[in-house]
Every structure is written in structure tokens, then in C-alpha cells.
């Protein structure tokens, strides 16, 4: 059984003349422990699709199954990491990571052994994310990269089987992003969540994923799915291998083709011709 099953999903925003078809007939199965990245020109609906899986947005047709259950709203089995503004600035780093313990959901049927285990897990996540020195800092005392580490640790705290990431490293500088890539691959290997990851960075998409899903806009749909021809164990040097570069070039070209940029270029040519005549 696939961990996430997206079946003929459609999403329409607005009504009448404001009607926009954000997603049209999207179908995709994501296997347990798979790492799938989504790329595509802006407006292709990749973030919308991720939010539908997370239950933060509702779909207007089709069905989404997570663990075989229809998605009807957000839940702790599908944790989400956002690009920014999701940490709680009034809580220290450790308190942010343990936030789910404040929720009724995180306290149900609890034994003292479980409380201890949870405390141990928070400590372990703190170490895993390299945040030991920052445990008692407030989020706004940390750099952007450190803040995202906290957000990831917090999302992992409840042992979600599915981890959804919406451009989590989009606001970070290139060097920090590379460090985060290896960190998230490590997390994936260790915690074994099923990972759906939206990005606009093609290199990032290839480096992290088992499969790269390329989406196209107007209406938002799946265009091509690429299997990444790299060994399961990734290393930064692989970014310079011919197969990596070939795939990157292919995906970039396809994004450009599907983005509608060509029609813009056509219009520009037409304008130039009109001006010349």
C-alpha cells in the first residue's frame, strides 16, 4: 500500500470569472519511506498539492489517502515544515521542540515511562540537529538556518510517518542550504519518514530525492516524473557527475517549456516587429 495516494485530485479556487483551476486530475502514489520532491514553474500548484496532503487546504475533486485513510484535515501523522514564521518566538528552542507535548493529543494515555521517553527524544532531536548550545535561546536569537533546524526537530518530535516540507530552505544562503541538505538526508535515513518536499531549486530537488515530480501550470498538473539515477547514499560531489548535470539540464529545460515563458518571448518578438514596421 502506498503511504500517500493522490487520486485524480482537482482544486478550484474562487467562482465565476475569478475561477482558477489550481490543480487538475493529479494522480501520484508515494511509497513508504520514499523521498519525493516537487518542482515546477510558479503557479503549477506544487505548494497547493502539498498543503492538500497536509489537510491545510481542501481539494475540490478526487481523493487523497494517507496511510490508507482519506485526508479530511490536518493531523499529527502528517507534520509540516514551512519556509518561515512558523516557530513560536515566545518559547525557547527546547520548548518549541516540545510544543506538541502541550497538546492533548500529545498527552493521551501517557505513562511515566512515555514521559521520560519523550524527554529523551527531545534531547536526542536537539543533538541530531546540532542545537545543544541553543536549547535555551529564543528563536529570534538564531540564524535562519538554525531556526529551520528547530522547525524540523519540532515537526519530528511526534514521530510523524509523513513529513511535508514547503520550500523549507528557500530563505537560506547557498552554503547553509548544502549543510541542511545533508542533515535532512540523515534524518530521512534515521527516522524513516515518507518525505514530500516542495522546492524551486532543481539541484536541491535532484540531490535529495528518489523521484522528482515536475509540475506544470495553467492548470496545475503533473508533467513528468524523473527517477533520480544516483546511489541511495548521496554525497555533495555527486552534483558534478554527468548524470546529475544531464538530469538538471533536462528538468530546467522542461520547466522553461511548461512555464509559458515562450509565449511571452513570442509576444515580445511580435511587439518588436510591430515597432520596426
Amino acid at each position: 500500500m502506498p503511504k500517500i495516494s493522490i487520486q485524480h485530485v482537482g482544486k478550484v479556487f474562487g467562482e465565476g470569472s475569478h475561477r482558477v483551476e489550481a490543480l487538475k486530475d493529479v494522480s501520484l502514489d508515494i511509497a513508504d519511506n520514499e523521498f519525493v520532491t516537487f518542482v515546477g514553474a510558479s503557479g503549477c500548484g506544487k505548494s497547493t498539492l502539498l498543503r492538500i496532503i497536509g489537510g491545510l487546504e481542501y481539494h475540490t475533486s478526487g481523493e487523497v489517502l494517507a496511510n490508507g485513510q482519506p485526508v479530511a484535515g490536518p493531523g499529527a501523522d502528517r507534520a509540516m515544515v514551512f519556509q518561515h514564521y512558523s516557530l513560536y518566538p515566545w518559547l525557547k528552542v527546547m520548548e518549541n521542540i516540545k510544543f506538541s507535548r502541550r497538546l492533548k493529543h500529545g498527552r493521551e494515555d501517557i505513562t511515566s515511562a512515555e514521559v521520560e521517553a519523550a524527554s529523551g527524544r527531545a534531547d536526542a532531536l536537539l543533538s541530531l540537529m546540532g542545537l545543544n548550545a541553543a536549547a535555551n535561546a529564543y528563536p529570534n536569537q538564531l540564524s535562519g538556518g538554525m531556526q529551520q533546524r528547530v522547525a524540523i526537530a519540532r515537526a519530528l518530535m511526534g514521530r510523524p510517518e509523513i513529513l511535508l516540507m514547503d520550500e523549507p530552505f528557500g530563505a537560506l544562503d547557498a552554503q547553509t542550504r548544502e549543510v541542511m541538505h545533508d542533515l535532512i538526508l540523515h534524518v530521512h535515513k534515521l527516522e524513516k519518514p515518507t518525505l514530500a518536499f516542495v522546492t524551486h531549486d532543481v539541484e536541491e530537488a535532484i540531490y535529495l530525492a528518489d523521484r522528482v515530480v515536475l509540475m506544470a501550470p495553467r492548470p496545475g498538473r503533473i508533467d513528468t516524473i524523473y527517477e533520480v539515477p544516483l546511489p541511495a547514499e548521496r554525497e555533495q560531489d555527486m552534483k558534478h557527475t554527468p548524470e546529475f548535470l544531464r538530469l538538471k539540464k533536462e528538468i530546467l529545460a522542461r520547466i522553461r517549456e511548461t512555464s509559458g515563458m515562450k509565449t511571452d518571448q513570442g509576444m515580445l518578438d511580435q511587439l518588436n516587429m510591430e515597432a520596426a514596421s
Partner: peptide, 10 residues
């Protein structure tokens, strides 16, 4: 995002 993060934590 602060609200949605809490929702995805249950």
C-alpha cells in the same frame, strides 16, 4: 504558519 504548524502537530 504558526497556526498551521500547531494544526499539523495535532
Amino acid at each position: 504558519a504558526q497556526i498551521e504548524a500547531a494544526q499539523t502537530m495535532g
